[in-house]
Write a protein that binds this DNA or RNA. Structure first.
Lengths: 152, 152
DNA sequence: CTAATTTGGTTTCATATGTAACAATCGAAT
DNA sequence: ATTCGATTGTTACATATGAAACCAAATTAG
């Protein structure tokens, strides 16, 4: 007897759905941190975080490290530049390239937000429990390892 | 000595990021199924899947079951109605309410897509490995259980 | 060397989204 | 019965997004 005749698909147990739902739940909560504390959008936060982590980078590299579309990066960089949180420096040998770097102000805000981010993650680990958190992390790593080779 | 002085936050190991990234990777792949095979958007697919699973529902309930904003549901229902994949029936006692139900055509397409969805998930389980898949599922369940009480 | 191609990044345009305002209806309170 | 508030669903508006066109600069091909 085929179970699927009655319920071809249970959405609440279907991984693409549960994964997307969990991501939204976590994302929504985490967003309050960079939105409320700094008025940043998600692309802006990711750009800040990537530059904070890696130091000087080009826009293309920011996109690669943070999995963002180049138009998102472009707009986020503009916005952070207007805030004076980052500065551009055109490459001397290749004038298409711009090296992007956080200003002192940007660096300061990055550290502050990074601390809140770590606290958020710690709270999440606490809420989920050490074991579930570790399982989730391992599962996500597996996804990244298997599907993450896509350029985009 | 404080490790965070050098790298306040490693994005590739930060759960809100890895979760969001994994969701996008899986979502992008799964989307090809309902897009290529039926020309559906994600809200349309979710609406179809929810009605297919639960039978007759109101728009509000579809939103609750599929975690979609009511405007998304409203637009998806319109579109599916135009395709003649669902029909509306106004409640006799409360004329604000519309009972939504798949047509035979809608049902047929739902079953077809549901089968592809199950195959997709099976392939994913295969790719990730039984163990990682199970860990991921449990981790996601924990997230849902702890954070899923938000209405939205 | 010049033309064609590629690359880094921005802008344009069409689409998708959510907030808020809205219309219609219902239920409760007076 | 009438008014007020809540609920169901749609629409209008402003914003976010990505595909594609685009510009400028560099590289490759002929």
């Amino acid at each position: 007897m085929d179970q699927t005749e009655k319920t071809p698909l249970a959405l609440e147990a279907f991984l693409p759905y549960t994964l997307s739902r969990a991501a939204e739940l976590v994302s929504r909560r985490f967003a309050t941190i960079y939105k409320d504390h700094a008025g940043l959008t998600r692309p802006e936060w990711r750009t800040l975080a990537t530059l904070g982590q890696y130091g000087t980078l080009t826009a293309t590299l920011i996109g690669a490290h943070s999995s963002m579309h180049k138009t998102k990066v472009s707009r986020a960089v503009q916005s952070l530049e207007e805030r004076k949180w980052l500065k551009r420096r055109t490459d001397e040998n290749d004038r298409r390239i711009e090296h992007l770097e956080l200003t002192r102000e940007g660096e300061r805000n990055y550290r502050k937000l990074a601390e809140l981010a770590r606290a958020f993650e710690a709270g999440l680990k606490d809420t989920l429990g050490e074991k579930s958190f570790a399982e989730l992390s391992r599962g996500l790593d597996a996804v990244e390892k298997q599907l993450g080779t896509d350029v985009f």
